[in-house]
Design a protein around this nucleic acid. Structure first.
Lengths: 223, 223
DNA sequence: AATGGATGTTGTCACTGTCAACATCTGGCG
DNA sequence: CGCCAGATGTTGACAGTGACAACATCCATT
């Protein structure tokens, strides 16, 4: 006791939306999310510690439990935030060239770019998806929202006769798997040799392009 | 003290290659690996506990440290074992139809099948690849062995004029990404709806086939 | 003004990975 | 054969972790 009010260096760097009360944080939930993401980006998901997150925010180790049921729920919230931004990113990329094959390519590039620019989010989103869904009942729906952006694009491309009229879900799953694989391998350091700077972008571009034309030698005809 | 020799129910179910001595296990290293894999398959990587692994083998919690430097090294060994079996599986699939497009398709199917049949191995192999490589200096080489099987197949298919003469590494990376994505999504429960039994196999087959022909509508010509 | 609910804190617990010190066994030496 | 060095397995202990319960503080509503 008598240790209250000591944990802030007076001149706080908080998000201060309300007059800082020194005891109540003001927007701790948001701050916790942001700090968790920052920590994960630095140390990986397994390096995330509730105590450290608290300490870094100048808050006690259990303050978090007023905003999240437990550690997994915090991660579920990170995943949810990730899927929401992800959906927006995909939608934006598609929107700029809607209905064209370019649009699909841009969306694929945006997919991989998102994973590389937000590896912490991406890792959490797909790292333990099933378990996270048990913590946040709506997470499934949010994640399916991302998938739907792709699926809708596929359908409209089929209607415009740009791509083959296969089962759209099959096609969407194929595209999703490809970009997911590209993103995962890149994040894990299994991508193209990192010594060549633009190599990754090249591979991504090549992959998405060849996804359209196919790998088969042009002479052969396949139905 | 006086608690030695109690941990075995006399009629052991060990791998008994040597007369069981009740104190020395005989083949603990192998047993630890197997038990770790079993546990991970049940509880996930984060559910793996050195103490439980020991207990399950009727051995103390620290016996493991005579065979592995630490927990990460155990995981690195799991990954290594995984990559070795993985290489063999890919090689087998390719070998049966070497030099043909069918061979590539079989290899792709074998890839996803391996991931589904050995999810514990697969999760560890790709779950934290970079960190594991720091624990086992040879892991990189072993993993590249798996990749080389695919790359060699690609090269020989190009020479046989079955597929286009792109940069083989690019093509290999494309194929790898696709099957890796398929496998990851399937393991994570993000694959096709699990209520349809053969759905996954269908998607995999479709994806690998369309990888050859491409998604573009047949009318259009692309170089 | 006061009071109940929201928010943050301290004390504590069981559990984990890891190390050091010790016990036991086994193979190879004389 | 006897014995001892190294390999293998065990116990004790410690710091760090997530989680809960009990308590402190603050804020909004009456």
């Amino acid at each position: 006791m008598a240790a209250y009010h000591q944990h802030m260096p007076a001149s706080a760097s908080r998000t201060l939306r309300k007059p800082p009360s020194r005891y109540h944080h003001g927007d701790l939930r948001r701050a916790l999310l942001a700090e968790a993401v920052r920590t994960i980006a630095r140390d990986g998901v397994e390096g995330l510690t509730l105590r450290e997150v608290g300490a870094r925010l100048g808050v006690s180790r259990t303050a978090l439990y007023r905003h999240f049921a437990d550690k997994s729920s915090l991660l579920a919230a990170v995943a949810r935030e990730g899927f929401e931004r992800f959906t927006a990113a995909l939608r934006d990329a598609w929107g700029a060239h809607e209905g064209t094959r370019t649009g699909l390519e841009r969306m694929g590039e945006a997919y991989v770019r998102f994973a590389l620019e937000h590896p912490a989010h991406y890792r959490v989103m797909f790292g333990d998806y099933r378990h996270l869904c048990e913590k946040d009942a709506e997470l499934t729906a949010v994640a399916e929202g991302s998938f739907r952006v792709l699926l809708d694009a596929i359908v409209s491309l089929q209607e415009a006769n740009v791509i083959r009229r296969d089962d759209p879900r099959m096609q969407a799953h194929l595209v999703w798997s490809l970009v997911h694989g590209l993103a995962m391998l890149a994040i894990d350091g299994l991508g193209p040799p990192a010594d060549a700077p633009g190599a990754l972008a090249d591979v991504v571009h090549f992959a998405i392009r060849r996804l359209g034309t196919g790998l088969d030698a042009p002479e052969r005809k396949r139905r």
